[in-house]
Design a binder for these strands. Structure first.
Lengths: 253, 253
DNA sequence: CGGGGTTAAATATAGTATCTTTATTATCGT
DNA sequence: ACGATAATAAAGATACTATATTTAACCCCG
């Protein structure tokens, strides 16, 4: 099978000094080729054996490089005939998890996350009012109705609410905002929603309905302001929940 | 060397079905332990051999898992006596590159990136006006002065400008905003700045000076508005540059 | 002679085992 | 306290077996 031309002559530049390990060199070359547009999603990178020969290393090294590239979402690996490594297309979920891990390791507070989320979602609402298509409008209405039906099932209602926020971001037609919101939700959104009372649920539903309406009537400034306010309310609840959880942990442990 | 207790009994739950590969199972268990706060930065995970024994697999599998965890920034690996895998602390650079790759693979436009950057930086300026310490104020002033000295050296001036924007984000004392800005700059900031004229450079410097002043006088609303306007101006320039580059590519190829 | 489904061969990763080399740290002796 | 030495652990190489997947050959049937 023919290899992608971007890697044809990659061994010509003999390594000046080994930048730590052999596999990192391979990883770097592939990444650079990607940024230089010499590689595009779907391109065939080669098999373990191919890469090993091309870079004049053992298969272990090639394998290490592929593991790293795979973990970074740069390549997809398939086994069997016709298999091997191919350049992946974007994968928001993978990236969202990477951010979640980093935020966890950095030890950021809920407050910091919610502040960022406010910025992202306010802009998303503003742009949604400008860019949303009739299809987006329908989806937002549909999600509001679904949440209304599920208002007594806390878990389902919470999931539905999260979907609504994501749908607003998607209606903005800005994929950066979508990716960023997914990753922040991954960290900030509660799996169970212990402090959700019926009254709060109704208030949230009402805001969502208004948001859908403002977006449909293309009131960008109104949508922005309402979303801003709404996320601040959510932030307050999350921070309070978090303080409660910490207190509970102190009590029981 | 003692292993971290979070991994002591991880083999008790026999695998119900192999979720694709053995190494992914190890990766998942470590990640879950991380999110469950059973593992914290600095904790010792074990050596390749340790992990292999613990999960009852060969060293290659353990190694695959460690390569993946390393690529995701979850662990750091050291060779030699006393070496092995340890849980890493946050690494913004690593994450920024991950976002850059994903945005590249997804094929997002410069416009989308700059919109998101506007949201992030406006909020950063607002929060900087509220949270900045005297040390932050000094750093901002210093960067403005440095840029003033380097105004004739395009590359140095561009670098300095970027530093200023990052310093504002750091002055917000919100680490999420810092991480997000680093990653967006990684994609949007030009290495060379071909359309930067002396007049534009002076105008930018002036805005930076005003921003530093508004942050120092704790005018949150003013800082926010000025930054918003400023990033919109930058966005316009980047988009124009990009169109120019595309046109040039069409002409020469 | 043509089509469709089954089987077999080819291919490539997943995983195992054992080895050498190299980098780093810990230890021990002076 | 310092320097040589031993111990440790990853980096890398080699040669396997097992398993999954696709391609292609084949056979049967219409």
């Amino acid at each position: 099978m023919r290899l992608h031309p971007a890697l044809e002559y990659s061994t010509r530049d003999v390594l000046p000094f080994r930048s730590a390990t052999l596999s990192t060199r391979i990883v770097h070359e592939v990444r650079e080729a990607l940024f230089a547009k010499e590689l595009r999603p779907g391109d065939f990178l080669g098999t373990e054996k191919d890469l090993a020969q091309r870079f004049n290393v053992s298969r272990i090294v090639a394998r290490d490089a592929l593991r790293t590239l795979e973990a970074q979402g740069i390549v997809e690996i398939k086994v069997g005939s016709g298999g091997g490594a191919r350049v992946a297309s974007g994968n928001a979920r993978l990236f969202a998890e990477a951010l979640a891990v980093q935020l966890d390791l950095t030890g950021v507070s809920v407050g910091e996350i919610m502040e960022a989320q406010r910025a992202i979602e306010s802009l998303a609402a503003e742009l949604a009012a400008i860019n949303a298509t009739p299809g987006d409008h329908a989806r937002l209405r549909q999600l509001v109705e679904e949440a209304e039906r599920k208002i007594d099932d806390v878990a389902a209602y919470t999931r539905c609410s999260r979907e609504f926020h994501l749908a607003v971001a998607e209606a903005s037609h800005n994929r950066v905002l979508v990716v960023q919101l997914i990753s922040l939700q991954h960290v900030s959104w509660p799996a169970h929603n212990p402090t959700l009372t019926a009254e709060v649920a109704h208030r949230i539903l009402d805001v969502h309905r208004q948001l859908a309406h403002l977006i449909e009537t293309r009131d960008a400034e109104g949508a922005r302001r309402l979303m801003d306010e709404h996320v601040q309310m959510i932030a307050g609840r999350r921070i309070a929940e978090h303080r409660g959880r910490d207190a509970a942990a102190r009590d029981c442990c």
